Amino acid sequence: MTDTFSALSDPTRRVLLDRLSAEGGLTLTELGEGLPMTRQAVAKHLAVLEAAELVASRREGRCKRHYLNPLPLAKMARRWLARFEDVPLSTISGFSGARSVSRLGQGRTSAGAISAHS
């Protein structure tokens, strides 16, 4: 999972994943179109994504096509991020916004209450 977070930490790699999500089966040249970097730089970013298993590749003759592999992202969401979806306000009692949330009363989410005071 550390490889997944490291791979996702770079904005360029997220752009590449967005492109593969929108239109899978892209070549290295197609992935790099319009990006302000060399083909070699795109290849290095793609190698990081492949090492994290976020991208799967398949050879078609002389052409190598790349596809988004959503499984590592789904695993990360289930295993790690899901823990924080419904965090009770009592667990963040040290957070300065928590007191404001409790004073606002019922019916408001912590995000809405905190942003209202920002």
Rank of each mutant, 00 (worst) to 15 (best):
Met1Arg: 14
Met1Ala: 12
Thr2Leu: 13
Thr2Phe: 10
Asp3Cys: 02
Ser6Asp: 15
Ser9Arg: 12
Asp10Met: 06
Pro11Phe: 02
Arg14Thr: 14
Leu16Pro: 05
Leu17Trp: 05
Asp18Glu: 09
Leu20Arg: 03
Leu20Tyr: 03
Leu20Pro: 01
Ser21Leu: 10
Ser21Lys: 12
Glu23Lys: 00
Glu23Leu: 01
Glu23His: 04
Gly24Thr: 05
Gly25His: 00
Gly25Val: 02
Gly25Asn: 04
Leu26Tyr: 05
Thr27His: 02
Thr29Asn: 10
Thr29Lys: 14
Glu30Pro: 11
Leu31Tyr: 02
Glu33Met: 06
Glu33Ser: 12
Gly34Arg: 08
Leu35Thr: 04
Pro36Trp: 01
Met37Trp: 05
Gln40Phe: 00
Ala41Pro: 01
Val42Asn: 01
Val42His: 03
Ala43Lys: 08
Lys44Cys: 03
Lys44Ser: 12
His45Val: 05
Leu46Val: 05
Ala47Met: 04
Ala47Leu: 07
Val48Ser: 08
Glu50Ile: 00
Glu53Gly: 04
Leu54Asp: 00
Leu54Glu: 04
Val55Pro: 02
Val55Thr: 05
Val55Ser: 04
Val55Lys: 00
Ala56Trp: 00
Ala56Thr: 03
Arg58Asn: 06
Glu60Phe: 02
Gly61Pro: 05
Gly61Phe: 04
Arg62Met: 09
Arg62Gly: 09
Cys63Asp: 04
Lys64Ser: 08
Asn69Gln: 09
Asn69Ser: 07
Pro70Glu: 09
Pro70Leu: 05
Leu71Asn: 09
Pro72Ser: 02
Lys75Ala: 15
Ala77Cys: 08
Ala77Lys: 15
Arg78His: 12
Arg79Cys: 12
Trp80His: 15
Trp80Ser: 07
Ala82Arg: 15
Glu85Thr: 11
Glu85Met: 07
Asp86Ile: 00
Asp86Leu: 00
Pro88Tyr: 03
Pro88Asn: 06
Thr91Gly: 02
Ile92Leu: 15
Ser93Phe: 01
Ala98Asp: 06
Ala98Thr: 08
Arg99Phe: 15
Arg99Cys: 13
Arg103Ile: 13
Arg103Ala: 14
Arg103Thr: 14
Arg103Val: 13
Leu104Tyr: 08
Gly105Cys: 11
Gly105Met: 09
Gly105His: 07
Gln106Gly: 13
Gly107His: 11
Gly107Trp: 10
Arg108Lys: 13
Thr109Cys: 13
Thr109Tyr: 01
Gly112Gln: 14
Gly112Asn: 11
Ala113Asp: 03
Ala113Phe: 02
Ile114Leu: 13
Ser115Met: 11
Ser115Pro: 02
Ala116Glu: 14
Ser118Thr: 13
Ser118Lys: 10
